[in-house]
Computed example of a mutant assay.
Amino acid sequence: MSATAPGSRLTLRPGGPAREFSVTLRNGNTRSYRHVLLAFQMESTPGGSAHPGYILERWDQATGTWRPATLRIANDTLPYAFHEGGTPLAKNEVTTHRYRLRAATGAPSGPNPILISLIDTDTDARVFYASLPQSTLE
């Protein structure tokens, strides 16, 4: 799994435009997965408080529209057993998913990477993880 953004990082401005990034899954494993799910999290923002001022969306290729995606803001990891759903990932399959992130007006400034986990919801286990550098400017 890899996450990429133009310039290798996301730089946001509160109230500014969304910035796109992609997550590519490469299953070179010895088996297929029945249900995998991408889970996104940011730590509580600088200053120590959680701020709901970030909007994550995923590109739905079937409808040609951006759809809301879940972005958890917390300092702890949600137990993998709490994740449900997911889609199949066949052996040797490669898929790329497009996302965009926006900082709402009032979002605090500072660095706060996006932590991305690939969860196998059938076994309640994290298959892989990555992070993408992100900074919100004043």
Rank of each mutant, 00 (worst) to 15 (best):
residue 55 I to K: 01
residue 120 D to T: 09
residue 125 A to L: 12
residue 81 A to N: 09
residue 43 E to L: 04
residue 84 E to W: 03
residue 70 T to F: 00
residue 120 D to I: 07
residue 93 E to W: 14
residue 51 H to W: 03
residue 37 L to P: 01
residue 111 P to Y: 11
residue 126 R to L: 10
residue 92 N to K: 14
residue 46 P to Y: 13
residue 82 F to P: 00
residue 65 T to I: 02
residue 88 P to M: 02
residue 71 L to D: 09
residue 119 I to W: 02
residue 96 T to A: 07
residue 27 N to G: 00
residue 65 T to G: 00
residue 61 Q to V: 15
residue 116 I to W: 00
residue 65 T to L: 02
residue 66 W to H: 10
residue 42 M to S: 05
residue 60 D to C: 04
residue 30 T to M: 13
residue 121 T to R: 09
residue 134 Q to P: 08
residue 71 L to P: 14
residue 102 R to I: 03
residue 57 E to C: 09
residue 83 H to Q: 14
residue 90 A to V: 13
residue 57 E to W: 01
residue 87 T to M: 06
residue 101 L to V: 14
residue 48 G to A: 07
residue 91 K to H: 04
residue 27 N to K: 00
residue 69 A to P: 11
residue 56 L to G: 14
residue 36 V to M: 03
residue 85 G to H: 05
residue 90 A to R: 10
residue 57 E to T: 10
residue 72 R to S: 08
residue 108 P to I: 15
residue 31 R to N: 11
residue 53 G to P: 06
residue 94 V to A: 07
residue 56 L to D: 07
residue 109 S to Q: 12
residue 100 R to W: 01
residue 29 N to S: 11
residue 93 E to V: 14
residue 58 R to A: 05
residue 134 Q to T: 13
residue 69 A to G: 14
residue 87 T to K: 09
residue 38 L to K: 12
residue 119 I to S: 05
residue 39 A to H: 03
residue 77 T to E: 09
residue 104 A to F: 12
residue 80 Y to K: 10
residue 113 P to A: 10
residue 91 K to Q: 08
residue 133 P to N: 14
residue 93 E to G: 13
residue 105 T to M: 08
residue 62 A to K: 05
residue 88 P to A: 02
residue 31 R to L: 10
residue 103 A to H: 04
